[in-house]
């Protein structure tokens, strides 16, 4: 009886919220991807037509390719830089706390605002050379990578710092006495010890890069000519900018979900393996 009561008090409200805000929309979305609709409460079934259209148009695949390129570059750069910063800021140099705060701060600003700020900065830099952010897709790509790094590094750094601080001093000291060089200590002692942090950080950067929307929307809005359009933005544009394509946009979103889920599970499986 107390079990039922506790369930009602502690779990049921959350479960109801979860059901309404996550489970229900998810299955509605799944259903809507097989229909033709204008508003989500009013749909007609069309079978696999939407999915056919997803893969017959080149836009989805080109955004997928752009997203993959972006994700690879930003996962590597964010993690590398965040790890180096964390290493530097665990050495006890003066002003460590100040630096940690400063590096973390960009993470507190929303993506849209960051996008517009960096648009101004990059345009300001390129302007004297007779170029703008939209002159070439490469600028947009680099801009997105810089923006992503600037925003994510601080957060990842904090996770790495926590990991580094939990490495027992005595092991490092023992390695030191045994004559291991700084590089060897890093590679053989510290790195295996912080694998849990690496797992978390790669997972976060990977999924966040793949799902990037706000920054992309504000920085380039996919320009020039949709060449810097990432998957999430492509879904949005299909849904809202083409007459009668809501179902296709929804189908794209389902495919997108499957891709993200597969990548995330695969990555978790691989890094978990190395933690053991």
């Amino acid at each position: 009886m107390t079990k039922v009561k506790n369930f009602c008090i502690f779990l049921l409200p959350t479960l109801i919220c979860f059901f309404i805000a996550f489970i229900l929309p998810f299955f509605m979305g799944l259903f809507l991807s097989f229909t033709d609709f204008r508003t989500v409460t009013d749909a007609t079934f069309v079978g696999l037509k939407n999915y056919k259209e997803v893969f017959s148009g080149g836009e989805f695949l080109s955004s997928l390719w752009f997203t993959v390129k972006f994700t690879v570059v930003s996962v590597i750069s964010v993690n590398l830089l965040a790890f180096l910063l964390a290493l530097g800021l665990t050495r006890g140099i003066k002003g460590t706390n100040l630096f940690r705060t400063v590096f973390f701060m960009p993470n507190l600003i929303g993506g849209i605002v960051l996008g517009y700020i960096w648009q101004l900065i990059i345009n300001g830099i390129l302007y004297p050379y007779g170029q703008t952010l939209l002159s070439s897709a490469n600028y947009g790509f680099l801009g997105l990578v810089v923006l992503m790094n600037w925003q994510m590094i601080g957060y990842m750094m904090v996770i790495y710092i926590a990991g580094l601080q939990s490495v027992p001093e005595d092991i490092i000291e023992a390695a030191h006495i045994d004559g291991a060089s700084g590089w060897m200590r890093l590679k053989k002692i510290i790195f295996p010890q912080i694998m849990p942090s690496v797992t978390i950080c790669t997972f976060l950067t990977l999924t966040n890069s793949f799902k990037l929307f706000d920054q992309n929307y504000a920085l380039t809005d996919g320009g020039p000519s949709g060449k810097t359009k990432m998957l999430a933005l492509d879904i949005y544009k299909t849904f809202y900018n083409k007459v009668g394509s809501e179902g296709v946009g929804q189908a794209k979103a389902v495919v997108f979900f499957i891709i993200v889920a597969v990548i995330a599970l695969l990555q978790l499986y691989l890094t978990r393996d190395r933690e053991a």
Partner: peptide, 17 residues
Amino acid sequence: SEGYKDAVGGALLEYSG
């Protein structure tokens, strides 16, 4: 559609650049 206008706008941007 809006997509059509965006495509034309994008082409004009690339042309003027």
